[in-house]
Amino acid sequence: MDKIKRQLTSSSKATRQDRIGKLVAFLCTFLIGLLVVSIFYMVASRGLATFFKDHVSLWDFLSHQNWNPSQVGKDGTPEVGALPMIVGSFSVTVLSAILATPFAVSMALFMTEIAPKRGQKVLQPVIELLVGIPSVVYGFVGLTIVVPVVRALGGGTGFGILSGTLVLFVMVLPTITSMYVDSLRSVPGFYREAALALGATRWQSIYKVILRASVPGLLTAIIFGMARAFGEALAVQMVIGNASLLPHDLISPASTLTSVLTTGIGNTVMGTLPNNALWSLALILLLMSLAFNLLVRVIGSKGRLTK
C-alpha cells in the first residue's frame, strides 16, 4: 500500500528530468541575458562618462574633426571629434555593400535558379571557406596585395578607403550570398511554375518574379553584410592607414571606429578621458549594430511572403 502511495504522491523520474531540463534551460538563458545586459551597461556607463563626467558636448563629439583625446584644443575642450572615424566607418561599410551586392545576387541566382546542382557542389564550399577565413588573413592579404596594387594605380600610400572597401568586399560577399540563397529558396515553387506556365523564359521569370519576390530577403542579407563590415576591426585596420583625417578621396589614409579602438585601447588608462572617449566610440558601434538588427526586424515583418 505504502509503496503505491509513494509512487503516486512523489514525482516520477520523467517529471524530475523535466524539471531539471527546465532549470538548465532557464539558467543558461538567464546567464546569457545577464551577459548581454552587463556588456551594455559596461559600454554605456564608460561611453557616457565622456559626456557626463568630462563634459564633452555630444554634438562636438559627433561633428568635430580633431581626434587627439590626450590634448586640449584651442577652445579649451579636449580634442575628441569622432567625425572622421564615423565617416570612415560608414564609407567602407556602404561602399563594400554596394560593391558586393551585384556579385552576391548573381552567385545566389546561379546557385538556386540557374545551376542548382553545380552551384551546390562548387559554390557552397567556396562560400563556406570564405566565411571561415580569419580576418587577420584577409588583412594580411590586403596589406601585401591590395595596398600595393592601389598604390600603383592610384598613387599615394595605397592605404585608404578603397583598400578597406576591397578587403571588406571579399569578407561580406559570402555573408550576403548565403543569406540571399536562403531567401531565394524560400520563394514558393508555384511562383516559378506560374511564371513558366505563362510562357516566361527563365530570365523573365527570374527578373520579373523571383527577384521581386525576394527583395525583403535581399535587403536583410545586405544589412547583415553591412553589420559585419561595420564591426570588422583587424582587417580594415591593417589596410586603411589609421589617420584620423576626414577622408576627401578614396585613396588617402582614413580611419574607422574600430581601427581607432584597437590601436588606442592599450595605451590609455581606465577612467581617464582618452579611455572614456574610446568607450564612446564603442558605444556608437554597439548602437549601430542594434540599429542594423532593428532594421532587419522591420524589413522581416513587413516583407513576409504571405500575399
Partner: peptide, 19 residues
C-alpha cells in the same frame, strides 16, 4: 600633423620600405 598611424615597428618598417 595628422597623418597615417601604425601601431607596430614591423608594420612601419614594411610600409616605409614600400611607399
Amino acid at each position: 600633423l595628422r597623418s597615417q598611424e601604425q601601431d607596430s615597428n614591423g608594420t612601419v618598417q614594411k610600409i616605409v620600405a614600400a611607399t
